[in-house]
């Protein structure tokens, strides 16, 4: 028990050792005194308590049986509290099952025999790892089927999207039409600029311009809008 507290003591000493480098000698001695007192104070009730408490009783008489039992029960479902394994559960039912498994291990039963014993009584439901059977095929392969289906759907969807984008070759007439549109756009912009410069009474953007003298920023803004 005392050994347990030794690292703790060393820790404190190490801390005080660090302090030596930081503080003056006088304060170091004061510091050491305080720490020693604190340690003494902390140790004294513990050493008294030590007498009162005994060593913890081992959980099982035989740790090996306990280990095997725990390994087995971790994969078994507690039927009462269904989201817990028998190893974790504190339910009466799980206590019983753990007891039975311990007894069976003592009786030299193999893990397989013990699992069979439980499945015979409680069904596959007791297993967290369900066996492959005709009734569990969907359980085992359902996710795979779902994945394959989703992947197929995704590929199909993406292909469909790519097909929707078509290379369009424009005819001469269309190109001309586009050119005209672009030209008129250009013409409008230049026209606007001219109008702004002229400070004419055009309806588009004259109202604000008339009230406030134009500054460079708002002019740029208007130009941007028009483009």
């Amino acid at each position: 028990m005392k050994n347990l507290f030794n690292p703790f003591v060393h820790d404190s000493v190490r801390v005080s050792g660090d302090m030596i480098t930081l503080k003056s000698r006088k304060s170091v001695s004061v510091c050491c005194m305080t720490i020693m007192m604190v340690i003494l104070y902390m140790l004294s009730p513990v050493s008294r308590a030590e007498v009162e408490y005994k060593e913890a009783i081992p959980v099982a008489e035989n740790p090996e049986i306990e280990k095997r039992m725990l390994a087995l029960t971790e994969d078994l479902r507690c039927l009462v509290c269904q989201n817990e394994s028998i190893a974790d559960s504190r339910a009466d039912f799980s206590n019983d099952i753990r007891r039975i498994i311990r007894e069976q291990i003592k009786a030299n039963k193999t893990d397989k025999e013990i699992i069979e014993f439980l499945v015979d009584r409680y069904g596959d439901f007791v297993l967290y790892n369900p066996p492959m059977k005709t009734t569990t095929v969907l359980l085992w392969f359902g996710p795979l089927i779902f994945f394959i289906f989703s992947a197929w759907f995704l590929v199909k969807y993406l292909k469909g999207r790519r097909l929707e984008i078509k290379e369009v070759t424009l005819s001469e007439a269309e190109l001309q039409k586009a050119a005209v549109l672009l030209d008129t756009n250009q013409a409008m912009v230049t026209g606007n600029q001219r109008r702004e410069n002229d400070n004419s009474n055009n309806q588009d953007n004259s109202s604000t311009q008339e009230q406030h003298p134009m500054d460079d920023a708002s002019a740029r803004e208007n130009k941007g809008n028009n483009v």
Partner: peptide
């Protein structure tokens, strides 16, 4: 001690 209960698969 519930031994027969376990044989019958009693859990509740």
């Amino acid at each position: 001690d519930g031994a027969v209960g376990i044989d019958y698969g009693v859990y509740g």
